[in-house]
Design a binder for these strands. Structure first.
Lengths: 246, 246
DNA sequence: TGCGTTTCTCAGGGAATTCACAGGTTGCCG
DNA sequence: CGGCAACCTGTGAATTCCCTGAGAAACGCA
């Protein structure tokens, strides 16, 4: 089932109408807090743990619909935690957090069962999107909730990463895609450059704020070129996307 | 839930009908007093603190629906305060106050959970508007309270920053938008130039008082041009806006 | 390793916005 | 009706904000 959250976006709900529950496991407090904050904002119920012990315990009585699990925990190996989690919750999907240079094939094996992973440093849009996908596919939330965002004649499929405008296929890079997704998940709402930076870029991004301008420019070239523009600048406030009709 | 306050404007209320509670944290007394006064005028219940210690303590028993938090406090780092606040009140939205030149610096991640920020020096209208947005979206206030102001055939949407008169779209600059918002939040009420200056311009504005006249003139050109005027001058007293019919 | 792609910095240009100034207009009062 | 104060608005300059080209660096894949 999907419904409209207080902030105006559609959110996932479980079949019984209660909010989705997510367990976040990471030993860095700043990471769990960042994630908790962002995921709560999605309307989900969040519990966090700082080590494997706590994770298993919390999982036992919280019974989350999904788990975000750092593979590097102080007390036990990520695989060990995973094993114990699976004993408690055989079907729960897991989103792994790994260091960039982690052994890729080890992860690959893990995600074979429908799980997924993102590398640190991640962007919040990415984590949220992956989690939504996992939850949707696990059946914890209503399956009819589909994976396509639509604004006017612009569509974006979160599963296939396909983007079309008026039927034409449009190729976007990863960053362009995430930016567009964020805009389309908040149609007709002005988003400041800071908000965009916080959601779409990694949490450790330390660069110039004008990357946002730059990527907006790229998006316009691909999406608005020669058509009625959908991406609008609100000088001094930010950007927003809306159907072209106007 | 929204209702009509003693001074004639609609205000946010919590679902149980009690006033919204806001905690203001800043070490400059002049700032907390300025904010407290302005926010009380909104019909909200205000408590203030001058350092991180006090903020956390006050938060504990005051249980605010929103927090205004200066990032530069004498005793602890703004982020540290945030962390402790979050432990007390996991879901409370925070409006950060930051220095202008710190914008690029460490805003990183702050708006990620739906929080927001304004830079010093700010205008009171801006702070109030952002707070209203945060509270509205956090669900602490009734969800039906929407983001659109309406006076006669004039509408102003605070989310999309869209303004229409009789259905026609009207483009406003940032300052024009804030001025109009202030007028529309106080329909049929005479607002003096001093009041307008105090609310719409930053507290450190040192310019000529006739900017108000100038911007009223701009607004008239865009909103009243060729129509029944809605913005009226009360010579010697100020300006007011009201539906055109009356 | 090498090559195409993607991300990002930097900087110039351009346009929108803000504001001061000043002369014109309106309304009010004696 | 004259004079004054309050208000309106055209002009233009300074500033801020935004856009985008060019190229360097990092990445990804064969």
């Amino acid at each position: 089932m999907t419904t409209t959250s207080p902030h105006g976006r559609t959110e996932l709900l479980r079949p019984d109408g209660s909010p989705v529950r997510v367990l976040v496991v990471d030993d860095e407090l700043s990471i769990t807090e960042l994630l908790s904050m962002a995921l709560r904002y999605e309307g989900w119920q969040i519990r966090s743990a700082g080590d494997g012990q706590g994770a298993v315990q919390t999982a036992r009585d919280f019974r989350p619909d999904a788990v975000v699990l750092d593979m590097m925990l102080p007390d036990m190996d990520g695989l060990a935690v995973l094993g114990r989690l699976r004993r408690e919750l055989p079907d729960v999907p897991v989103l792994f957090l790994t260091a960039k240079d982690a052994v890729e094939d080890r992860i690959a094996g893990l995600t074979a069962g429908g799980d997924d992973y993102v590398t640190k440093p991640f962007s919040l849009e990415e984590v949220v999107a992956r989690l939504r996908g996992l939850i949707r596919r696990s059946g914890a939330a209503d399956r009819r909730s589909d994976s396509t965002l639509v604004v006017g004649d612009l569509t974006l499929d979160e599963d296939s990463h396909e983007v079309t405008r008026a039927g034409d296929n449009i190729h976007l890079t990863a960053t362009e895609f995430e930016l567009l997704r964020f805009l389309m998940r908040n149609p007709r709402r002005v988003l400041s450059k800071a908000q965009i930076l916080d959601r779409v870029w990694s949490y450790d991004f330390g660069g110039q704020a004008n990357v946002v301008e730059l990527y907006i420019s790229y998006l316009r070239r691909k999406i608005d070129a020669g058509r009625e523009p959908m991406i609008h600048t609100r000088r001094g406030a930010g950007y927003l996307i809306k159907p072209a009709v106007s």
